[in-house]
Simulated scan of single mutants.
Amino acid sequence: MIDNSPTLSFLILGSDSQVGAAMVQLLKSRSIPYVALRCEHCWQEDALRAFLAEHRKVQFVLNALFEQPEESAQPDFKQWYSLAQRLQVETHANKQVLLLLSSAQVFSGGSARPYLETDQPDAGLPYGDAMAAIEQSVLKAGQQSIVVRVGWLFSDQPEHFLACLVDAAVQQEKLSFSGKLSGNPTDSNAVAKVFLAIAEQVDCGVEEPALWGIYHYADSDACTMHTFAKAVITVVKSMTEVRVESILESDSPDMVDAVLQPENYELSCRKILSTFGIKQRPWRRSVQEVLTGLLDEPLS
């Protein structure tokens, strides 16, 4: 058994988000101390302030609250920014290390190459603009903080994309997905492991190179949404009965994920490799593991 550091401990804000839930399971499996707060309680100012005050000696605070919302959600991004600032002030005062989950969606998708950490955010859409503002608020504070932008998240949580895709494959004969929207499908479990690996190195007192700032992590093998959906449904077919027969590549304006011009959200992950030695994991390797967990639950 690996001996854990006596100082390595976590507050997880958003323990029911995809990355937050994955982090809880990972820390539990490693017997690393943590305290978790669900998303709904984080939005209650008094409850959050009391929680942070009670656990001000915990070393790392993972803010996993700001995952990309579902299509039907209408979040208050001003409230997001206000909450992020409050967290930044509290964790800075407590001399805690703040780990912030961010997204490739801070970019517009107009780049012909993978995005670098030094590229300027230019989303032009509410979620991406909100995340870019939150990032800058954290970084300008001058505290010990690390921002990790990630690719398209997938997990076995029933309300998210992968579960919706499985349900659609079971219930419908034809499905269509964008062939112009490309990026890095990324397992939320892999992101949790990235945050833990970063924290372990910070905990060891590594000072060179300087660790604070923005990093990209995404599973390897960038692809279109159509390619990802086809790969997922191929695995689903090997595990359960489905109705779907045709998986079309389409970009008609009436599609939910319609993209009329090519958009590329691929992330370059060289900085996180050179700084922390963290390598990308192929998303195809994770899909079957995640689907196994998902299909253990009854399909709707």
Rank of each mutant, 00 (worst) to 15 (best):
S252L: 08
C204K: 14
T118P: 15
E173D: 14
V242P: 00
L175V: 11
E117W: 00
Q120H: 12
G14S: 04
S182Q: 09
V170W: 01
C223G: 07
V166A: 01
D119C: 13
V61D: 01
V24L: 10
C269L: 09
R285E: 15
E117P: 02
E54Q: 15
S82R: 12
V244Q: 04
A258D: 05
S238L: 05
R281G: 06
S274W: 05
Q88V: 11
E208P: 09
Q105R: 13
F10I: 09
E173T: 13
Q96P: 06
T240K: 08
P33L: 08
G151W: 06
Q288V: 14
V61W: 04
Q280K: 02
D76F: 00
F276G: 00
T7I: 11
M225Y: 13
I32M: 07
K193E: 15
Y81M: 11
P158K: 02
S102Y: 02
H160I: 06
E70D: 13
A130R: 02
F276L: 10
V147M: 04
S300W: 12
R149G: 03
M255Q: 09
H160L: 13
R285Y: 15
G277C: 03
R30L: 10
N184Q: 04
L83Q: 05
D221R: 11
F228H: 07
A22Y: 01
S137I: 06
E245F: 04
A22D: 05
S182P: 05
A64G: 09
S5Q: 05
V19G: 05
Y265Q: 03
D119T: 11
V206M: 08
E266N: 13
A22E: 05
F10D: 01
L153E: 00
Q74F: 14
G124V: 07
D221I: 12
G109E: 02
N184D: 11
L196P: 00
C39L: 14
F51L: 00
S15T: 02
F161V: 07
P6H: 08
A50N: 14
Y115V: 08
I278L: 06
F161C: 11
P33Y: 06
V206T: 12
L26R: 08
A123H: 00
P75N: 09
F154M: 02
L153I: 00
S111N: 08
F77Q: 01
L26P: 01
Q144S: 14
A192G: 03
L27R: 02
T227C: 06
E249V: 02
S268P: 14
D76N: 07
R270E: 15
L139A: 02
E241L: 07
D3Q: 15
V24K: 10
I247P: 01
R284H: 15
S286T: 07
S17G: 11
L116Y: 13
G109C: 09
A190N: 14
C42I: 04
L26E: 12
